[in-house]
Amino acid sequence: MSIESAPRILLGDVEAIRIVEYRGPFRPAAELVPQAPAALWREHADRLAPDHWDPATDMAVMALQTWVLRSGGRTVVVDTGVGDGRERPDAPQFHRRQGRFLELLAEAGIRPEEVDTVVNTHLHADHVGWNTRWEDGSWVPTFPNAEYLLHAADHTALGPDNDYGQGASTTARLLYEDSIAPVRRAGQLVLWDGRHAIDRDLVLEPAPGHTPGSAVLRLTSGGERAVFVGDLVHSPVQILEPAHNSCFCQDPAAAAASRRRILERAADLRELVFPAHLSGPGATEVRRHGSGFTLAPHTPFETTGGTGRP
């Protein structure tokens, strides 16, 4: 695996730092966004290849990454990846994975002790893994002084009170027990509903569908606007055709409705869109195009290659 540096951008008074653990082929395009016809990928090949799609193999290209925001004296971590040494039998790409997440944070000048807030945009294995780390024979919070924010709907639907999503997968139980339960026992888990202000520039809002409690994080500072959309978008084809869901969306109708609503607002307000797994520059500008959207050329971060296997 090739490791990237930690490029950053200033959005008003907020600094956004990109921590990339992996960037490369993830799964066949037809599996990732099963509703999107092959012709859609080919039609937009000039925008999708090579950063988001490899035409030769028909593999979707994605990133495993975390955003760190410096805002108003606070350090906010948005999503925490897969984690190390996790039992994920239902997800072979994540099963017992080993990575350099903590080293990458250190190289970017970020110490776990200084993190004030962790945002889990939703309760999936590749967004909560580094909530905890293995220490002295047990899982403990990676960020000992942070509050961990999770939408209450995800905790209700995917937590122990609902048999971890009604027993939908073995991984659901395992990820809760190793990545959420230790944080809850430590008194650091904060469940929110409605909307939740982190500070004057950062606000969490629900965007259900991908999971019951999927959320987006809005940034408004110094005339700049951005929205961190988690897994609302896995590939730019879902911006070009927002009705197309990923294979991971639990409520397809709600996911499509949330995606269109968030993208409409991003286009109208000129919000820079940060999907959790967007490769290439990592963010994009969205413009209305007829009844849909198009991508405006925008490269907020330098790109430095990066290939390998997750």
Rank of each mutant, 00 (worst) to 15 (best):
Y176Q: 02
T294I: 13
G213Q: 06
V20H: 07
Y176P: 02
A168N: 14
V233S: 00
R86N: 13
A276E: 12
A106E: 01
I19E: 02
A45K: 14
P281I: 08
R88H: 08
N245E: 15
W67Q: 10
V33D: 07
L40E: 12
L69Y: 14
R260T: 07
T211L: 01
A296S: 07
A255R: 09
P310Q: 13
T303I: 05
H95V: 09
W130V: 10
T80K: 06
V183Q: 05
G223H: 03
G109N: 02
V119Y: 00
A168T: 14
G85T: 15
G305W: 08
I3P: 11
R261T: 06
R8S: 13
S71T: 02
R184F: 08
H95N: 12
L64C: 08
F248V: 11
M1V: 09
D84Y: 02
G305N: 08
L263P: 06
G187Y: 04
H52T: 03
A256G: 12
L272E: 12
T142F: 15
L240N: 00
E285F: 13
G230V: 01
T304G: 14
L123W: 09
A256P: 02
R184D: 14
V229Y: 15
Q250N: 03
G282Y: 05
T57R: 00
A6I: 14
A255L: 03
A6V: 11
S71I: 00
F274S: 02
T121Y: 02
H298S: 13
G109S: 07
R200Y: 01
I3G: 08
R261F: 11
A215H: 03
V128D: 10
A266E: 10
L189N: 02
G308L: 01
H124I: 11
S169N: 02
N120G: 04
R265K: 07
R74D: 07
T299E: 15
H127P: 00
W53Y: 02
L191C: 14
G187M: 04
E147Q: 09
Y176M: 06
P252I: 14
F228Y: 15
R259I: 07
L69A: 14
T57Q: 02
L150A: 03
F293D: 03
G194K: 03
P236T: 07
P141H: 01
R270S: 11
R97C: 04
G99P: 05
E147L: 09
S5P: 15
V203L: 08
D163M: 04
I9M: 14
D58G: 14
G24D: 11
D163F: 03
E285V: 12
V33R: 04
R225L: 03
Q238Y: 14
G109M: 08
R42N: 10
A38I: 15
R97Y: 08
V119H: 00
P50M: 10
A296P: 00
V216L: 02
P50K: 06
L217S: 05
A253N: 09
T171C: 12
R259L: 06
I3M: 10
G85P: 12
N245D: 15
L204Y: 00
L263S: 09
I110T: 06
R97D: 04
D90I: 13
D231A: 07
G209K: 05
Q188C: 04
W134G: 01
S221R: 05
T142C: 15
T284G: 12
A125K: 05
Y22P: 05
R218S: 06
A108V: 06
P160G: 03
D54A: 00
A38P: 12
D90A: 09
